[in-house]
Design a protein around this nucleic acid. Structure first.
Length: 629
RNA sequence: CGGGGUGUAGCGCAGCUUGGUAGCGCGUCUCGUUCGGGACGAGAAGGUCGGAGGUUCGAAUCCUCUCACCCCGACCA
């Protein structure tokens, strides 16, 4: 059952989807749902086995939880809301609602809550390998993002964060286990700092298979070894200053119907890098305690300003203000007086409900490269209008000068801030001089070429990756939600501290193909290949060839090498094409010519050309050699 | 959820503008010739044209509704 095809299904576009389909590994059964045919299943079992070995070595025990889970468990933690449409929901015959498990923090916490009641029983780590369900808005790219997939998920429980038996110890052990798993699988990967997302928790790392087609953008600093997902990546220190002369008088420009940076840039003949992109966020209650000029009032709106060619990072905005934010609802923001699409920094002037957050690259009044005043275009805070010759000091003058006695006491430490700033060229407007309603902070996504946050003078390099593993320090988020605590040595009730560790088994197979293929097909590393060696018989009916095949395959099997035999009555070309497509690490061809010399043709999939003749009694050693790499 | 697109044989597609016998390539089956990089010839099987309704003497084709799927975006262990 290896249905190979010359052409890929029309809906397949990415290499792994096309090749796994053509090579007879998978068949699409529904949108984002795939059947694993025998070849794929063998590969998945091999990946799972390595995962199992490393999990056991890291002290985790395997178990299996149900895929169908009462929705009540997810209501306890609020994740039925947080996940929303991503949860598959099924109603049983009694009308009870269940979720198909997208991940099992709630279930495992529930189990442990009832089973564990003493610190003496901790720490514990368990894992399972199971089908997970997520009703993705847009499944795509075959196995890379589907609605039903195979995942290894592990969970650990601790009394403490540090020290023996603490969360950090297990987290580090899992981290190391992941590194060993992906090394053993023969994958080229990068570990990056990551955002925790809706799973929650403090620290997290993602394991990315390096592939051009990857969905995730990661940034790497070669000198320090720092690597992070773009969602998380810090940017090194950048000089900034609001002080500087204006290049010209503020000029209002009519820009009807042009709300996008691209449109305006084209119309006004301004490069995006010379525009200020201004986004309005709704901080809700996050800023309730912030100083406000208005009696009894609080700041609600966060106006974030970055350069037009940069993207605001919502997580960084959240960190900068110390609480949750969300992009403002357009209607509400309009009602509050923001001309959405045409907002500029000056909107903060005269309002006491706005916190202005400015990225260092946007907080410039002097173009240091040219040594003259910086040219800025920005929104005019009036529908269909923008302004040219924006100058921070002039346009925000009142705000920048307003002194707020409480400000210095309340100010939090911002990422990337340091005392050295004053020494940097062009830096004179010190953070300490700013009123509380303006902050300069790193609030944008990092790009290639940005300064490294870990090595002075180095810059960040960009590459793409496929997320195959993600580990989290959860803390007490789930245990507190269900009231899971144990008594410690001092008879004090302590919340149990958790970690969770995910690894996409089916995605790893696809990532492997993305990483390693050529125009003829897949090139499998030995650890993931469904079989190690393919024996191609030129004349399947020929007794001499049959005998040679039986001998070689028998000897290979004795060495623990998995053999697939192609004894189909097909023309040689067809068999060779299929062999390359399926991509097993070694191909042995048994034909008359070689056999006459007591040899078979030996060809590693990676090597180009014809392959070489190897005497039959030495071919097993050669196979073991190649597979051992 | 916004934008774009596609549903016709197992797979890949044409036919639709201008309504009139449902086609091509690959694959499958039979026979023959071939036989170390997706052979050639002859023949054969295989289709509710996504579904429902409508217009018409007549609908794959025109109209209305609907379903499914794909791509881009937004979102995302």
């Amino acid at each position: 059952m290896i249905p190979t095809a010359r052409e890929a299904p029309a809906d397949a576009e990415t290499p792994s989807h096309i090749l796994l389909s053509r090579a007879g590994f998978i068949r699409r059964t529904g949108a984002g749902m795939y059947s694993y045919l025998p070849l794929a299943w063998r590969s998945l079992m091999k990946i799972s086995q390595i995962v199992r070995e490393e999990m056991e070595a890291a002290g985790a025990s395997e178990l299996l939880m149900p895929a169908v889970i009462p929705i009540e468990l997810y209501k306890v933690t609020g994740r039925d809301e947080a996940y929303g449409e991503l949860l598959f929901r099924v109603h049983d015959r009694h009308g009870r609602e269940n979720a198909l498990g997208p991940t099992h923090e709630e279930v495992i916490t529930d189990i442990f809550q009832h089973a564990i009641n003493s610190y003496k029983q901790l720490p514990l780590t368990v894992y399972q390998i199971q089908t997970k369900f997520r009703d993705e808005f847009r499944p795509r790219a075959g196995l890379l993002r589907c609605r039903e997939f195979i995942m290894k998920d592990a969970y650990s429980f601790h009394l403490t964060v540090d020290g023996p038996g603490g969360l950090n110890e297990t987290y580090d052990a899992q981290y190391a286990a992941y590194v060993r798993v992906f090394e053993r699988l023969g994958l080229d990967f990068t570990v990056v700092d990551a955002e925790s997302g809706p799973i929650g928790g403090s620290a997290s790392h993602e394991f990315m298979v390096n592939a051009e087609s990857g969905e995730d953008k990661i940034l790497v600093c070669d000198s320090s070894g720092y690597a992070a997902n773009v969602e998380k990546c810090e940017i090194g220190e950048r000089a900034w200053s609001f002080e500087g002369e204006a290049l010209g008088d503020l000029a209002k420009v009519h820009t009807p119907g042009m709300a996008s940076i691209e449109d305006i840039g084209r119309f006004m003949k301004v490069k995006p890098a010379n525009m200020l992109k201004t986004m309005v966020f709704d901080a809700g209650e996050s800023l309730a305690d912030e100083p406000s000029v208005a009696p009894g009032g609080g700041q609600r709106w966060v106006v974030a300003v970055v350069r037009g060619n940069h993207d605001v990072n919502e997580s960084k905005v959240r960190d900068a203000i110390g609480g949750p934010v969300a992009l403002a609802d357009e209607k509400e923001a309009r009602a509050a007086g923001f001309a959405i699409g045409y907002v500029g920094p000056a909107v903060a002037v005269g309002r006491d409900d706005v916190l202005l957050l400015v990225d260092p690259d946007a907080a410039q009044s002097t173009d240091s490269a040219k040594g003259k005043a910086m040219f800025w275009a920005a929104g005019a805070n009036e529908a269909d209008h923008h302004v040219k010759f924006f100058n921070w000091q002039r346009e925000l003058g009142g705000l920048l000068d307003s002194s707020d006695q409480d400000a210095s006491a309340r100010r939090v430490d911002l990422p990337g801030a340091s005392a050295r700033r004053a020494d940097l060229p062009g830096a004179s407007a010190r953070r300490a001089d700013l009123p509380a309603r303006i902050r300069v902070a790193d609030i944008r996504n990092a790009n290639a070429g940005d300064p490294s946050p870990r090595a002075e003078g180095s810059i960040l390099r960009e590459q793409r990756g496929i997320e195959v593993g993600h580990i989290f320090k959860l803390g007490c988020k789930y245990s507190d939600a269900v009231g899971f605590g144990v008594l410690d040595q001092d008879q004090q009730r302590q919340s149990v501290i958790m970690g969770c560790y995910g690894l996409g088994v089916s995605r790893t197979l696809a990532a492997c193909v993305e990483m390693s293929h050529d125009e003829n097909g897949i090139i499998f590393p030995a650890a993931i290949a469904p079989y190690h060696v393919l024996i191609t018989l030129m004349k399947p009916d020929d007794p001499a060839q049959q005998e040679a095949c039986a001998r070689v395959s028998g000897e290979l099997a004795e060495q623990g090498i998995d053999v697939l035999i192609d004894d189909r009555e097909e023309r040689p070309g067809v068999k060779f094409k299929d062999a390359d497509l399926i991509g097993l690490p070694v191909r042995l061809t048994i034909g008359d010519k070689a056999l006459a010399e007591g040899a078979v043709e030996f060809k590693p999939r990676r090597s180009a050309g014809k392959g070489e003749l190897v005497p039959i009694d030495r071919v097993v050693a050669r196979c073991a050699d190649v597979l051992g790499d």
